[in-house]
Computed example of a mutant assay.
Amino acid sequence: MDLEIRHLRVVCAIAEAGSLTRAAASLRMTQPGLSAQLRRIEAMLGGIMFDRQQSGATPTPFGELVIARARAILPGVEGLLADTARATRHSSGSGRIRVGSVGAPLLGHLLLAVGALLPEADLTSRCRYSPVALLDDLAAGRLEAAVLGDHPGQELPQRKGVACHTIADEPVFALLPAAHPLTAQDEISLADLLEEDWAVPRPDGDRTREYWASLCASADRAPSAPYEAEGRQLIEIVRAGLAVSLCQATFIEVPGVAVRPLAGNPLWYRHILAWHQGGPLAAVSTEILRRVVDGYQAACSESPAYARWRELNPRAARPRGCTADRQAGTAPTRPPSMTRS
């Protein structure tokens, strides 16, 4: 893991709050998640930065050194990002459309929608693991639109000037080797899956791994996770029969792997389309949203396991992107399907 600006922000937030609990609240993270991230930062830098006691978190001499440097660096970096964002907006005008995405099935549909509605635009895209980083890019004007995602209890923070609309809430499914005995079942219990070795994403890209762990804790057992990978590498580990994992319901099965629903639908994922309210896409946002929802419906039909699940759960599977459910300054809502028993 390389040191990033957000790591310096985390260190400064803990120092300013005086405790991990208060810092986690200000950063919209869980306290265990923040504690784990701090340990990774300390391991990377080679020293303990905070003396952690019940009364709070006090910087160590090593921590005071890091905090002082971070406080000196961050204003300059923030100023650089703000200045370059303004310069880019001024030079690009409405002719340049920059789109971002997390790993989700909506990016292609978003690009097609923008290209059809603004055919003269210079359209570019980039992908990142962290939806918060993309949200920050939208708020700063470094992106015009983005495909985002979050989980229950990990809702993305609001950003001034950014409209966020839920496309759909979908369950998280099990990803297994095609020859695994559990594939004979129509749905798989989380407890049975926890008997296997897992392949999991790295903990620093987004909060997916943290969410998985929190739900597994409800089964009073942490998964054995000897393999850390993402994307194609994770699929190859599962295909080789070395581990199981989890995936979005819209994941398209490839030879060698199988996708099955989890019994009781204990885990969920929310697909979100977001754009800058002052950008060139605001005027065509309704039509873009409609086209992306249509694209999501097509992606659902391409996943046999999800198509079957939707037939059995028609109300829970209904997309929600045709009407706005969240804009800047308003709180997100969850449909009944997101309530876990």
Rank of each mutant, 00 (worst) to 15 (best):
P59K: 12
S92F: 01
L134N: 13
Q53K: 15
R98G: 00
A82I: 03
E42L: 13
F62T: 10
H90T: 08
A70Q: 10
A121W: 00
E120H: 08
R52E: 15
G93K: 03
G47H: 11
Q53V: 14
E42I: 08
R128P: 02
A36Y: 07
R52Y: 10
L117A: 03
A87I: 01
G56C: 10
L74W: 08
L135I: 14
L45N: 09
S125W: 01
G95W: 04
L112V: 00
P59Y: 11
T60H: 13
T84R: 12
R89D: 01
P119C: 06
R69V: 11
V77P: 01
I41D: 05
L117F: 02
G56F: 11
M49I: 04
A68P: 02
P131Y: 07
R40W: 13
S130P: 07
I48H: 14
S35K: 12
A82N: 03
G100R: 01
G100Q: 04
M49A: 11
S35D: 09
R40I: 15
A85C: 03
A43P: 04
L45D: 05
A36W: 07
S94D: 14
H90A: 13
G76D: 14
R98Q: 06
L34N: 07
R128Q: 10
G100D: 02
R89T: 00
I48A: 12
G108C: 00
R69I: 08
L111A: 00
T60N: 09
R126I: 01
C127G: 06
G56L: 08
L117G: 05
I41V: 12
L118Y: 04
L80S: 08
